[in-house]
Amino acid sequence: MSRIIWLASYPKSGNTWMRAFLANYVLNTPDPVPLGDLRAFSLSDVRPRFYDQVFDGDIRRMTAGESVSLRAAAQRRLAAAKDHDHFVKTHSRQGMLQGMPLIDRSVSAGAIYIVRNPLDVVPSYASHLGVDIDRAIGVMADPDHATLEADVQIKTAIGRWDTHVASWLDDAQSLPVCLVRYEDMRAAPEKTFGQVIRTLGLPSDPDRLARAVRHSSFEELSRQESESGFSERPPHMERFFRAGRSGAGAQELASGQRDRLVAEFGAVMRKLGYLS
C-alpha cells in the first residue's frame, strides 16, 4: 500500500521551497518545474476531494468539527491517491484533537519537517494573514490557533509555534522525521538538500542536485510568480515570495517584539540553535 511522506512545517517556514526542490529533483526536467505543477506533484492534506470521498452529503455543508473527525479517513484516501509513496504538504501539528489523530501514522512513511527562526516567520506570517506584527505574535503563541479552507470548512490545527515544532520532532522514534532548518537551506542549499535526498533514499547525482537547486531558487520562484502568478498567494498579498533571506524578517521587529517572541519560544529556539 502506498504511504504519505509528510512535508510538514509551521506556515511561512519554507514548505513551498522544499516542494519546489523535490519536484525539480524527482521530475528531473531540463527546465524549472512550473509553480502551477506543484499541486499535482505534492498533494495537500486539506484537498477537498479526499474529504468529499468520505463525507456523507454535500461537502459544502461539512462543519469544521466534522472535518476533524474525518481527517484519518481522508488521509487514507490521500495515501491511496498514487500507486507509490508520495509527498503531502501539511501545516498541521501532530497529536490529538476531538479524540482523533491529526496525522494518521498507519498510512505515514515518515516526514520532512522544515523549521524557521520565529523571528523571521512572524513578519511573513503577518503579511500572509493580513494582520500587524503584534497580532501575528499573538496568533503564533495561541495554543488553539487553527485555519479553515476558504471554500469548505476543513480545519488545520496549528497551535503555538514551539509546540508545533515539538509535536513533530519529539515523535521522531515512532514516525521517522528528517529535520531541515530554513537557514541551512539558504546558507548551504546543495549540502542541505543533498542530505534530504540521501534520507529519502533517492538516487544521488551531483549535477542533478545542482540543477534542482538552481531551478528552485528563491530568484527563480519569484520570477515565475511575477510572470505567471501563484495560486497559493492570498488575495490581499502583493507577492507570495517576499525577501526570503535569513534574518531579514527579524530586522522588521521592534526590540519589544523580539523580546516577546524569545519569552514565548526561547527554550525551543535555543534547542534549534536560534539563540546562544
Rank of each mutant, 00 (worst) to 15 (best):
G273P: 06
L35E: 04
E238Y: 00
T147W: 03
A166W: 03
A166R: 15
A111K: 06
V152E: 07
P235H: 11
D37M: 14
A136L: 10
S92T: 14
R258F: 00
Y125S: 00
I112P: 05
W17S: 09
R233H: 03
I197W: 11
A81N: 05
G36K: 13
P118F: 05
Y113R: 02
V213Y: 08
S127C: 11
W17I: 02
D134I: 02
S127R: 11
V107H: 03
F21K: 00
L78I: 02
A150L: 08
F87V: 04
F265G: 01
H236Q: 12
Y51H: 09
R60T: 08
A109K: 14
L200N: 11
L275E: 12
D259S: 14
R270S: 05
G229K: 14
D162G: 10
A254F: 00
S69I: 00
I158D: 00
D52I: 00
G99V: 06
Q224T: 09
D205N: 14
R39L: 13
A126D: 01
S42M: 14
G110P: 06
D207N: 08
T199K: 07
R242K: 15
L70Y: 06
P123T: 02
S222E: 06
E238A: 15
R77A: 08
V262N: 07
D151L: 11
V122A: 05
W6N: 07
D144H: 13
S42A: 15
D134V: 03
A111G: 05
S13Y: 04
S2F: 03
S124L: 00
Q195V: 07
S228M: 01
E190D: 12
Q195A: 15
L43Q: 12
G36E: 15
L209C: 05
I4T: 08
H215A: 04
E190G: 02
G159Q: 09
V68I: 14
Q94I: 09
D144Q: 14
V33I: 11
W17H: 09
Y10C: 03
I197E: 08
R186Q: 09
F50P: 06
F241T: 05
L27A: 05
T16E: 05
H128Y: 14
D104S: 13
R233W: 07
L275M: 11
R223G: 10
A136G: 05
N24W: 04
R239T: 09
G256P: 03
N28Y: 04
L22H: 04
Q53E: 15
D104L: 00
Q53V: 02
L43K: 12
H91C: 14
R47D: 14
G14D: 04
L38S: 05
I133W: 01
D259A: 15
F41K: 08
S44T: 07
I103E: 03
R39I: 12
A20D: 03
D170K: 06
D45I: 01
T156A: 15
V131N: 04
R233T: 13
R3Y: 01
V88R: 06
A23S: 12
T90D: 00
R239V: 11
H164D: 07
L221E: 02
E227L: 15
M269L: 10
I4Q: 05
R270T: 10
A212I: 04
F265T: 06
V262G: 05
E219Y: 05
Q173W: 04
L7N: 11
M269Q: 09
G130I: 09
S2A: 15
D132P: 02
S106H: 11
K271A: 13
L70K: 06
D31A: 12
F230N: 12
